[in-house]
């Protein structure tokens, strides 16, 4: 995400997905936030060797994405850039953890491999869960959820303003960088000499914009407080959504479903 224009498209894509209509989109944002939280907690609570136990967790993204009509490929593409770092840290487990964990008739797999894979899977699932939340909810409704959670209005309005002006400033930054690169023959980035002025100009323009925004807020009676409209009520269906998923997560957490399936398939006699 190191190109202003690309990031803008990224935000737009997620915004567009959030505008779709589906059962999932209709669920109250607070319940979706809570469900995501429960999912993340359960996912990371598996220890590093519980590779197969955590696999049923993939049902959550699969089901939600299918119900919400979220295309898999563009979302997966957005998960990938976050993985190298996790991979980097995880790779060390291969070096340091050689205790045998998984024993197959033809090969013995050391713990490092299992924990490495489990870190990767956790990474994939947790990032996916965050993207699914935003792609089915949208920033405005997340702010609503935060408000119901009694997060102070100052923080919420400032979060929304940041979000709102990211689009504007990314465009501005994109224009500045384009204008710069047009006049700097073949340079890939920005030369040291120009770091201050280039970013500084963008900053001063931002500060001036903030002042104009403030004025226009004042003209419409802003006095330091942010008022939202009526909060959408939480109905039984919303609560059931949260409860249903939470129970499923707990079942996945406390019962090794893949082991049961495996046992059903081939049987292990002791």
């Amino acid at each position: 995400m190191s190109n202003p224009v690309e990031s803008l498209y990224n935000i737009r894509l997620l915004d567009e997905l959030a505008e779709k209509k589906s059962i999932i989109h209709n669920v109250h944002p607070l319940m979706k936030v809570l469900t995501t939280g429960a999912y993340l907690l359960v996912t990371v609570s598996f220890n590093k060797y519980q590779l197969s136990n955590m696999l049923p967790l993939v049902f959550y993204p699969v089901i939600v994405m299918s119900l919400a009509d979220i295309p898999a490929i563009p979302i997966f593409k957005r998960v990938l850039p976050a993985l190298p770092l996790i991979t980097g840290i995880g790779l060390f487990n291969l070096l340091y953890d050689k205790s045998p964990v998984l024993v197959l008739p033809w090969i013995t797999i050391p713990g490092g491999w299992v924990s490495f894979l489990s870190i990767l899977i956790k990474g994939f699932l947790t990032i996916l869960a965050a993207l699914i939340l935003i792609a089915t909810t949208g920033m405005t409704k997340i702010a609503l959820a935060l408000r119901i959670m009694r997060i102070p209005g100052v923080f919420i309005i400032q979060l929304l303003l940041t979000y709102r002006y990211i689009a504007v400033l990314l465009e501005e930054a994109g224009r500045i960088v384009r204008a710069y690169s047009l006049r700097s023959a073949g340079e890939k980035g920005i030369k040291f000499r120009d770091w201050g002025p280039l970013t500084g100009h963008l900053l001063i323009r931002s500060i001036e914009r903030a002042q104009r925004v403030y004025r226009s807020m004042c003209c419409r009676g802003f006095a330091g407080e942010y008022h939202t409209g009526r909060e959408k009520g939480i109905n039984t269906g919303d609560i059931l959504y949260f409860a249903g998923w939470s129970i499923s997560f707990l079942i996945i957490r406390y019962f090794n479903i893949p082991a049961m399936i495996g046992w059903l398939m081939m049987g292990v006699r002791r």
Binding site: M139, L160, Y163, R164, V168, R212, R215, S216, M217, C219
Partner: peptide
């Protein structure tokens, strides 16, 4: 008051 740049006036999401 209608400002010159609508981006300054449309600050919500």
């Amino acid at each position: 008051m209608v400002f010159q740049d609508p981006d300054d006036q449309l600050f919500m999401t």
